[in-house]
């Protein structure tokens, strides 16, 4: 038996909206520690890792580890039916191939029950080692979204360069070139407005912009984003979900032959 209750159905809805274009089918692994999902896009260039800790839920019960394969577009269809302030309760048991989403209005006057068919998904799971990264940049998530969208109108790829003084995003295309340089900014009223650059050694990497633009769909989930880079390694783009976990996107770099 699995049962979990979230104060805001809207949170899960936003999470699924932010990843469903990248991965259409995925298996949620449920255990006593929470709900996790790891999946690659169909071209195996990017990977999504979602972690929702059990202590971030209002109620969480998972008698034994349990896998729930879901079509994320179908899941999104159901989650869209939740009211803005509805709570969400998820229920599933091994006896039937269904997960139930219960949406309850704040005054408890409306209770909607949606049952989604579960599916068996065969996917390759990758072990992601904990690594020290050469550079870690934290910046407002809206700023990162603006940068990748702006550069996406100039070129297909972005070259990210981190030095101790700044982080540069550069793109080129048929119409010309663009470089956006962000300096470290610590003296802000709100901590989420900071741009923090931690550099062990300088890095310079190139990535396909369309994936980064896709990752930035998670902007509304967190005020700031953390980008971790090491030479010839996938970049990590992390959105922390307050009090419950994170969504991490990994993207393999473009490499010179």
């Amino acid at each position: 038996m699995f049962e979990a209750q979230m104060a805001q159905a809207a949170l899960l809805k936003q999470i699924i909206e932010s990843i469903r274009e990248l991965i259409t089918e995925a298996t949620f692994e449920v255990s006593g520690t929470g709900m996790m999902l790891q999946a690659m896009d169909s071209s195996h260039v990017s990977l999504v890792a979602l972690n929702l800790r059990s202590d971030g839920f209002q109620l969480f019960r998972a008698d034994r580890p349990f896998s729930m394969g879901m079509n994320l577009n179908h899941m999104a269809k159901m989650l869209k039916c939740a009211g803005k302030d509805d709570t969400l309760t998820m229920r599933a048991d091994e006896a039937n191939d269904l997960v139930t989403f219960l949406f309850e209005s704040p005054g408890n006057e409306r209770l909607a029950e949606f049952e989604l068919k579960l599916m068996d998904i065969t996917s390759e799971n990758l072990g992601i080692p904990d690594a020290e990264y050469s550079a870690t940049v934290s910046m407002p998530s809206a700023e990162f979204q603006r940068i990748v969208k702006d550069l996406g109108s100039i070129g297909d790829t972005v070259e990210i360069t981190v030095t101790k003084d700044d982080v540069r995003f550069a793109a080129s295309g048929d119409i010309g070139n663009a470089t956006i340089k962000c300096r470290q900014l610590l003296d802000t009223e709100k901590p989420e407005d900071r741009t923090l650059i931690e550099m062990v050694e300088p890095v310079n990497l190139t990535f396909a912009l369309r994936y980064l633009i896709n990752f930035s769909k998670a902007t509304s989930l967190a005020p700031s984003v953390t980008i971790k880079l090491s030479t010839e390694m996938p970049v990590v783009v992390e959105y922390k979900l307050s009090d419950i976990g994170y969504v991490r996107f990994y993207l393999a770099p473009k490499i010179e032959d």
Partner: peptide, 14 residues
Amino acid sequence: AARQSRMAAFFRAV
């Protein structure tokens, strides 16, 4: 031009 690498080149299947 640079070649697009894949995730499996960095992380192993488990």
